[in-house]
């Protein structure tokens, strides 16, 4: 299928990516080509074939619920772009605009 720039814009917002108009256009061409390429799979009759998500037949591996050492707060926060030694810090979830409109 052909992906329009509107399709690309929608997928980009799902993927939390932003693109310039020029990038949107080039992605729409490239992704349309790739999608056309993978559509080759439509030639294959897969009626009744069980999906294979994983090469191993391993499900719900359990272990004893025992206390084990984990990351200290300090090392967990070490790579954070912004923190206050206790929490990860992020910009406001709701901005001025959304306050104003509600």
């Amino acid at each position: 299928m052909e992906l329009s720039t509107d399709d690309i814009r929608k997928v980009a917002s799902l993927a939390r990516l932003e693109f310039s108009e020029q990038e949107l256009a080039s992605f729409s061409t490239q992704l349309s080509r790739i999608v056309a390429f993978v559509e080759k799979l439509n030639e294959v009759d897969t009626a009744g074939v069980e999906e294979m998500a994983h090469p191993l037949d391993v499900h719900s591996v359990l272990r004893a619920d025992e206390l084990q050492p984990g990351l200290s707060r300090e090392s967990a926060l070490h790579n954070a772009p912004s923190h206050d030694d206790e929490c990860f810090l992020v910009p406001p979830v709701l901005g001025q605009k959304s306050h104003g409109s509600r």
């Binding site: 294959v44 074939v49 069980e50 999906e51």
Partner: peptide, 8 residues
């Protein structure tokens, strides 16, 4: 579809 062909 891809997961089914993966099985094949």
């Amino acid at each position: 579809k891809a997961l089914q062909v993966r099985r094949l």
